[in-house]
Design a protein around this nucleic acid. Structure first.
Length: 377
DNA sequence: GAAACGTGGCC
DNA sequence: TGGCCAAGTTT
């Protein structure tokens, strides 16, 4: 074991946890927990799901919070648990309604998994969120983080809940060299958290680490001056807290050229449903298609109209360009308006009124596209 | 291990 | 603007 592989050894806590002073490791762990829990008692964020941390509320909030900021989640959470108050409510709700409640939050598979998970809770667990790691992680959409968060927060059981905040806090505390987000960092942090996690208040401890990461140990500008762990933080002692966790630059996003058609006929609008799997699976959109980089958008529109046997007295009107960036690609979508002479059926096209359109779940990119034509949902 | 999977805020 | 990042999971 080299210092490089294990991180640098600047603090008593670190030396103790590495086993150099085994008789004091437990003492240092207790001290860390004590300091952290005292800080948390004074500085914990007031969040809706913390008011009544029922297993269901914790479950819903954790699913929404995956890769999503607290401020973004709060209004969605309040609406969601108001509309779907219990696991039974959610299990029996139509999926379209659940997706609509999720609209704008992103990662829509979470919404489907959440509903499926509650169906399984109803069918296999007597309507109660299970209290074992094995049963939880078997539910769709529940991984190691969520299982640990539910067990520790809702049931006060001693399980780690290691999210991005905790990884960053520990990468700095112990000057861990593994790259951000890597399985290697995940493993190192898990071992360290396991060594430090108290059995007394594991839920508070896990949330304290997350709150510390979200309010003080920030990615860009950490507020070390008021951090309760400053003295035992290896990155702070090195003078370079933001050097951890180490990062690797991301490759340039591929750009996907694309057309979208606003077909309007007698006050109705044509929409189509995306395939169930993959990007924005099962959501609705204006009729669209990806283009080859060399393909002129206006020619692609003409070809699309021809293929679908759509006659239009006036030529398509160009409405504008929508650029929409996802995690792994970027759409550059040219939007055209067409007024066909009649409703065209088949080809997966559905004609809906504006009121009906409002019931469907549309990705953000299409809200932008509709706004080009002055249509707001 | 790597890639897919949404969106909004920040600089 | 463009890149980074956020209470991760799945394939």
């Amino acid at each position: 074991m080299t210092a490089t592989a294990e991180g640098k050894t600047g603090t008593p806590l670190h030396r103790a946890l590495k086993g150099e002073r085994p008789t004091t490791a437990a003492d240092h762990s207790r001290e860390l927990a004590t300091v952290l829990l005292a800080w948390y008692a004074e500085n914990r964020r007031k969040l809706p799901w913390r008011e009544h941390p029922t297993p269901y509320w914790v479950f819903v909030s954790e699913m929404m919070l995956q890769q999503t900021r607290v401020d973004t989640v709060i209004p969605y959470f309040l609406r969601f648990v108001s509309r779907f108050s219990t696991p039974a409510d959610l299990a029996s709700a139509p999926e379209e309604e659940v997706l609509k409640a999720w609209e704008g939050l992103g990662y829509y598979r979470r919404a489907k998994n959440l509903k499926r998970a509650m169906e399984q809770v109803e069918q296999r667990h007597n309507g109660e969120i299970p209290t074992s790691y094995e049963a939880l992680i078997a539910l769709p959409g529940v991984g190691p983080y969520m299982a640990g968060a539910i067990l520790s927060i809702a049931f006060n059981l001693r399980y780690p809940a290691i999210d991005g905040n905790v990884q960053r806090v520990f990468a700095r505390l112990f000057a861990l060299p593994q790259p951000s987000g890597s399985p290697a960092l995940q493993k190192s942090v898990h071992q360290l958290v396991e060594a430090v996690l108290p059995s007394k208040a594991p839920g508070a401890f896990n949330q304290a680490l997350m709150d510390l990461g979200a309010t003080l140990c920030l990615p860009r500008d950490p507020v070390c001056s008021v951090c309760p762990l400053r003295e035992t933080c290896a990155a702070f002692q090195e003078g370079q807290p933001t050097a951890y966790p180490t990062t690797t630059p991301r490759p340039h996003l591929p750009e996907v050229p694309r057309i979208a058609l606003l077909l309007r006929c007698a006050g109705e609008i044509a929409v189509e449903q995306r395939p169930t799997a993959g990007l924005l699976g099962g959501l609705w959109q204006l009729p669209s298609r990806d283009l080859q980089p060399s393909q002129p958008p206006d020619k692609a529109v003409a070809a699309w109209l021809l293929e679908n046997e759509i006659a239009s007295p006036k030529p398509p009107r160009y409405l504008g360009r929508i650029r929409h960036t996802f995690t792994h690609l970027r759409w550059v979508m040219e939007v055209f308006e067409v007024c066909p002479t009649s409703f065209v059926q088949g080809q997966g096209l559905h004609w809906v009124s504006p009121d009906e359109l409002r019931q469907l779940t549309l990705p953000k990119a299409y809200h932008k596209a509709l706004a080009l034509a002055g249509l707001k949902l």
